[in-house]
């Protein structure tokens, strides 16, 4: 566990030396993980209980504030009919394609900006400009170009994500410790070698922070974009369409799925990149 690891380092025990460890102390393990789970779950459970009490109190309109069991039944129905899975598939597909393109292009452009002063001078002003323009504001224009299509959605997604990753990759390169660059040069690293062996790993904490922001922004754009571009499936589309039928339970269900998927993408995908790199190096600790 990460917390146990941290405690060990703080206790000043020297790593790398041989340690004699007995069998695991299950009482402590169970107590700690139980405590962690309770701390994580308690606020969420509290929120659900509050909702349920409110929904059954009779003060609120049952159509606008359906009780949890009704939302649950709707979600199960949608899952059984396959609509839920289709929506999830379509939304995730758009997210992954758009975010992948954004990550690759943003990383390349941002790193080159950090490396080459001419490129930096040319690209920095438009980058700041588009950083200030919300991606959603581009939708009407892009719809005129490409119509109501997946292509429209994914291009806006890509553009917004790319700008975000670019800024972070660029600042990442710019803020690599000067003494590390000197050390790399003193040990014979030059040009592209210096760039890939020193600048890129040095910029990685910023780069990964950029990926996280880009992913969460991209997810917002997918869901809201699906409402604007009105395609035939997707989680955002479903939430928006449910409005026409006054199906509040379907809308709440959609929001819940959006939230859960967002958390999974963030915690599972991006967090694991962090654990494998910057956190392992100690340049970042959660």
């Amino acid at each position: 566990m990460a917390s146990a690891d941290k405690a060990r380092t703080q206790a000043g025990e020297t790593p790398g030396t041989e340690r004699q460890l007995g069998p695991p102390n299950w009482n402590v393990v169970i107590r700690n993980s139980g405590k962690a789970f309770f701390l994580m779950a308690a606020p969420l459970v509290g929120l659900l209980i509050f909702w349920e009490l409110l929904a059954h109190s009779g003060t609120l309109h049952p159509v606008l504030f359906p009780p949890l069991e009704k939302i649950w039944v709707t979600m199960v129905d949608q899952a059984k009919s396959g609509i839920l899975w289709l929506d999830i598939y379509v939304s995730l597909y758009r997210l992954l394609v758009g975010a992948f393109l954004a990550l690759v292009s943003g990383t390349v452009v941002g790193l080159v900006m950090g490396m080459n002063q001419t490129v930096e001078r040319i690209l920095a002003p438009p980058m700041y400009f588009f950083l200030a323009v919300p991606g959603l504001a581009l939708f009407p224009i892009v719809i005129l170009w490409f119509g109501l299509s997946d292509f429209t959605l994914i291009s806006v997604l890509w553009f917004e994500g790319m700008i975000t990753v670019m800024v972070n990759a660029w600042t990442g390169v710019k803020t690599v410790d000067a003494s590390l660059i000197r050390a790399g040069r003193a040990m014979g690293a030059k040009g592209m070698t210096l760039f890939f062996q020193v600048m890129v790993p040095g910029a990685l904490p910023n780069l990964i922070a950029g990926y996280r922001i880009a992913f969460s922004r991209a997810w917002r754009i997918v869901v809201t974009g699906e409402m604007i571009v009105a395609l035939e499936a997707g989680l955002g589309f479903r939430i928006f369409a449910a409005r026409d039928f006054l199906a509040a339970d379907m809308m709440y269900g959609g929001v819940v799925v959006v939230g859960i998927l967002g958390v999974i993408v963030e915690r599972v995908c991006l967090r694991s990149i962090e654990l494998a790199t910057v956190q392992r190096w100690g340049t970042l600790r959660e």
């Binding site: 410790d177 003494s179 590390l180 000197r182 050390a183 790399g184 003193a186 790993p201 190096w281 100690g282």
Partner: peptide, 18 residues
């Protein structure tokens, strides 16, 4: 220029954290 005929030790250590 820098070269492999000289090894440099820095005050800031400058050890690569990665």
């Amino acid at each position: 220029d820098t070269g492999f005929d000289r090894g440099v030790v820095f005050q800031e250590f400058a050890v690569f954290p990665w």
